[in-house]
Computed example of a mutant assay.
Amino acid sequence: MARKLKLLVLMVFVLALGACEQRDHDGTLAKVKGLTTPEEVRTALGPADRISKTGTTEIWEYSTSAADVCFAAAGNAIIRLSSCL
């Protein structure tokens, strides 16, 4: 019984560590270099950690190890923002 409990605690700990893992900042920027559509960015990075709307523009925020990386997506265009709003 104690062995099963230890194994369960270890599994929960490993899962918790995986959930805390953040994207590498430089790696994130490298993945999106040259991408020009929201679909390309979403394919490269996956869904944004946070999405907010300003009018018809969506602000996509990705958390990374150094700083958040944000994009403004409107229609079929996307640009990386110099800072998150």
Rank of each mutant, 00 (worst) to 15 (best):
G46F: 10
F13G: 01
R50M: 14
K31N: 05
K4R: 13
R80C: 00
T64S: 08
G55N: 11
V12E: 01
E39Q: 13
L8C: 02
A67F: 13
L85T: 08
G75C: 02
E58M: 11
I59Y: 14
M1V: 12
C84I: 01
G27M: 04
A73F: 00
A16D: 01
E58K: 12
M1G: 15
S65K: 10
V41Y: 03
L29W: 05
T64C: 05
L81F: 01
L7F: 01
C20S: 14
K4A: 09
L8A: 14
S65I: 04
D49N: 13
W60P: 07
G55K: 11
I78A: 03
T64F: 02
D26L: 13
C70I: 04
D49L: 07
R23C: 06
G18I: 08
S52D: 13
G34A: 00
K6Y: 11
A19I: 08
T36G: 08
L15F: 11
G34I: 00
L81R: 00
T28H: 02
Q22A: 12
G34Y: 01
L29D: 03
S82M: 05
L85R: 08
S82T: 12
E39K: 11
T37Q: 04
I78G: 01
P47L: 15
A67W: 10
M1R: 12
F71M: 00
Q22W: 07
A16R: 05
A48L: 10
G27L: 07
G75Q: 01
R42G: 04
A67D: 14
T28K: 00
Q22P: 07
L17R: 10
A72C: 08
L10T: 05
A16I: 03
Y62L: 09
E21R: 15
S65A: 13
G55R: 11
T37N: 04
M1K: 10
A77I: 02
A48F: 07
L85K: 06
E61K: 15
A77L: 09
F71D: 02
G34Q: 02
P38S: 02
L45M: 05
L35W: 02
L15S: 10
F13D: 02
D49S: 08
Y62I: 08
S82Q: 10
A74P: 00
K31A: 13
A77D: 12
L35Q: 03
G46Q: 08
A30F: 06
R50H: 14
C84A: 02
A30Q: 12
D68Y: 06
E58S: 15
T36N: 09
K4M: 09
F71R: 01
K33H: 11
C84E: 00
P47T: 14
D24F: 06
L35F: 03
T37I: 03
L15A: 12
G34E: 02
V69K: 04
A48E: 11
V12I: 12
D24R: 04
L5R: 05
C84S: 01
R50C: 09
T56E: 15
L5H: 06
K4F: 09
R50D: 14
E40R: 06
S82E: 13
R23K: 11
Y62N: 07
A44G: 04
L45S: 05
K4W: 07
I79R: 13
V12C: 02
V14C: 09
K53P: 05
I51V: 15
E61N: 13
T36R: 12
T56N: 15
T57N: 05
L7C: 03
L7K: 09
D68H: 11
G34L: 00
G27W: 04
L5T: 06
T57E: 12
A2M: 09
E61T: 15
